[in-house]
Design a protein around this nucleic acid. Structure first.
Length: 274
DNA sequence: CGGGCGGCCTGGAGGC
DNA sequence: TGCCTCCAGGCCGCCC
């Protein structure tokens, strides 16, 4: 559920709360996340370190520390990063806690445990197993229609799955893939390799626009997204097709269709999208 | 090797 | 009310 706009929203609010804070203590209460949380390594690398900067790469949040170590965080499906007074009782899904030097705690809360928490050094980042194979950032200049056109030429997979392939383009998840395809008028089942350059131009613009708009509004609240202060996003009012199976298309009034693609619900208008 | 799919995991919804 | 099943989906690994 947290796609690029949600992660970007969390990143911006965490930047305000964590910049120049020191991580006094690390406590792993449940190491069994998507990948085993190595408590010793976390303590060794980031324990006692000051956070100097936060950044985002794909759906990963990166907290850069003064000793050139980096805390890597991923929200998975249901992950939340909360900054709370240390006196607030722990939730049963608070799996990792970081005690700050201002009486607060950064808490990684994740009921479904699809997220991950790891540590690396700045030098390791480009080749780190979690980050090495990621594709282009959709909002970067290098993400062009020409790039997607070239990358897709031999692909027979549905364009919706292609858009969600993190090795091609990052940050586009199930919700925004459906939304971008609707905006561009492209049918989700169309083979990626059979989309012309002009249509890739439309689609590239649509992807960038939908992500920008969602960031501007603080992320969507479909499912259980929360900002670091616990607030919800407000993007849900803007969703044109996602979750609207059977409802009237906002453009042509035809009923929105739902189809499962690669195990994921996909929503589209059968007449507006070709 | 591209691509599809199951498994991970829990909570909430809906059926009976 | 309570039990059951289904669904949500990012990512990895397995398999064809």
């Amino acid at each position: 559920m947290p796609e690029l706009p949600e992660v970007e929203t969390v990143c911006r609010s965490l930047a305000k709360q964590l910049s120049r804070r020191t991580l006094l203590a690390v406590d792993v209460r449940q190491p069994r996340l998507r990948q085993w949380v190595d408590e010793d390594q976390l303590r060794e690398r980031i324990g006692g370190q000051k956070i100097v900067r936060l950044s985002r790469r794909a759906k990963y949040l990166l907290a850069h520390c003064s000793n050139r170590s980096v805390l890597i965080l991923h929200l998975g499906m249901t992950g939340q990063l909360l900054v709370l007074p240390a006196t607030v009782p722990l939730d049963k899904h608070d799996h990792v806690t970081f005690t700050l030097d201002n009486g607060k705690q950064l808490r990684f809360r994740d009921p479904r445990r699809f997220g991950c928490v790891a540590a690396a050094t700045e030098d390791e980042l480009p080749t780190h197993r979690l980050l090495a194979r990621l594709g282009v950032e959709p909002l970067a200049e290098e993400c062009t229609a020409e790039y997607l056109f070239e990358r897709s030429r031999r692909s027979k997979k549905p364009v919706k799955n292609f858009l969600m392939d993190q090795q091609v383009i990052v940050g586009v998840g199930n919700i925004y893939a459906s939304e971008a395809l609707f905006l561009a008028g492209v049918h989700p089942l169309r083979a990626a390799g059979r989309i012309s350059l002009p249509r890739w131009r439309k689609l590239t613009v649509a992807v960038k626009e939908i992500l920008q708009a969602a960031i501007q509004q603080g992320g969507t609240t479909v499912s259980d997204f929360r900002d670091s202060d616990g607030s919800r996003g407000y993007f849900q009012v803007e969703l044109r097709v996602y979750g609207r199976a059977g409802a009237a298309c906002m453009t042509c009034a035809a009923p929105i269709q739902r189809k499962v693609l690669a195990g994921r619900s996909t929503f589209y208008c059968p007449t507006c999208q070709t």
